[in-house]
Computed example of a mutant assay.
Amino acid sequence: MTLVTERVEAARPGLSQIPYTVGRTETASPSLAATEYHVMTGEAVASALRRLRRDERPDVIVGHTGWGGLLFVKDVLPDTPVLGYCEYYYNGQNSDFDFDPADDASEAHRMRLRMRNAAQLVTLQAIDAAYTPTRWQHRQYPQSLRDRIAICHDGIDTRLCRPNAAAEFTLPDGRVLRAGDEVVTFVARDLDPYRGYPQFMRAAALAARARPDALFVVVGGDGVGYGRPREDGRLWREVMAQEAGLGERMVHIPWLTHDELIRLFQVSATHVYLTVPFVLSWSLLEAMACGCLIVGSRTPPVQDVIADRRNGLLAPFHDAAALAGTIAGALARRGEAGGLREAARATVLAKFELEACLDRQTGFIERLAAQNDLRAAETAWAEAG
């Protein structure tokens, strides 16, 4: 297996790596900045594939459709099957772009957003097959393309992510949390508005008044994440910690190993997951597989997997009071929520179980490889004749 990558990973048995670099864009048009970067990425990957072609032609190429890496693959290796990973198609309406009324959804921004899809559209026209993780992500693509894009998640390891009534989690200050404790959890790669961090903190401050024994554990970094940095240069974590004023009842942990994260989910009384209309976090599905009682935002990606009062609870993204009431109510009735927890795990088992997802993905790849073998055999037969 060969990885063509801009960022070299740690060495692994059976994996070779071909690094590439992308220069700086120089276009004067703001609408073309992303497109130029994607084209430059495609050119760099094409150069790397030429080096690979001299040594050994790949059986199948799998890559991301959205960043330009697959743009020129078919020009370098026209007979090699290509499978594209379709993560996200940008839309100017009913999407993350216009979800927050306070955001700048100007005509100029919409023009730049439309052009961000240019490389992806060209790529989808050229490659052999494509897939996307969820139904909601699938619906973001133009209707004319959806028939070419299968739906298949990367999968959740439900043997690792499972309920454990004996689990314990040790906080940085030495306190030990156990299943049954009144623990509210919130997890995001970075604590930013895309994942509803400000909304969660405001709701936590209100819920804390109703539940004086509740402890709020937040995991996430201080990076920009999917949004933009604050104009005042301050961190969202600092601003919201000051606004919420929860002191020791709010514990922030910048980063956890995966095993530690699973243990945190296993002791969680209520796990809060919020997102604007954007790619669903794998952490939500892992929390569900651990049997968490989920309080989620009533936004389309979450509604793809959570049905209110069937396998979790939903609340409006922008309504801190309603979200706080849902959190407080979930804590008050957490002993009666066994059915919701079981249904959350059952959802993941039925739709996102790792082995089933891997079987489906490898099936895509094997079928493409078989087509390549057939084409090669036909070519050899024609040349022999």
Rank of each mutant, 00 (worst) to 15 (best):
V4D: 11
V4G: 12
V8N: 04
A10T: 13
A11C: 05
R12A: 15
R12I: 03
R12W: 07
S16I: 02
P19Y: 02
T21V: 04
R24F: 03
T25W: 00
E26T: 14
T27N: 01
S29E: 09
Y37K: 15
M40T: 05
A48F: 07
R50N: 01
R51V: 11
R54G: 15
D55S: 14
G63L: 05
G63S: 04
H64Y: 10
G68S: 04
G68N: 07
L70F: 10
L70E: 05
L71T: 11
F72M: 07
V73W: 08
V73S: 06
T80H: 01
L83N: 03
L83I: 09
C86P: 02
S95H: 13
F97E: 09
D100Y: 15
P101N: 12
D103Q: 14
D104L: 10
A108V: 10
M111R: 14
L113K: 09
R114A: 15
R116P: 00
T123D: 05
Q125L: 12
A129T: 05
P133Y: 14
R135E: 13
Q137A: 15
H138C: 10
Y141V: 08
R146D: 01
R159S: 11
A166C: 03
A166V: 05
A167E: 09
T170F: 07
L171R: 12
L171M: 10
D173W: 07
L177V: 03
A179Q: 12
A179F: 09
E182T: 03
T185P: 06
R189T: 14
L191H: 08
D192S: 12
G196I: 13
Q199L: 11
F200P: 06
R202T: 12
A205N: 07
L206V: 09
A207M: 03
A210D: 13
P212N: 07
V217R: 04
P229C: 11
R230E: 06
R237K: 11
E238H: 02
A241T: 14
A244M: 02
G245T: 00
L246P: 07
E260Y: 02
L261V: 06
R263W: 01
L264V: 00
A269M: 02
A269H: 08
T270K: 06
H271L: 09
Y273E: 06
L285W: 12
L285P: 02
A287M: 08
I294N: 04
V295T: 05
S297D: 06
T299D: 08
T299N: 08
I306E: 00
I306M: 01
A307Q: 14
N311R: 03
N311G: 04
P316C: 00
P316D: 02
P316V: 00
D319P: 04
D319K: 04
A322P: 00
A322I: 00
G325T: 02
G329C: 04
A330L: 10
L331H: 10
A337F: 08
G338I: 09
L340A: 13
A343Q: 13
A343R: 14
R345T: 07
R345N: 07
L354F: 15
C357N: 12
L358N: 11
Q361C: 00
F364K: 01
I365D: 04
L368N: 09
L368M: 12
A370P: 00
A370W: 04
Q371N: 13
T379E: 11
A380D: 08
E383D: 03
E383S: 07
G385N: 11
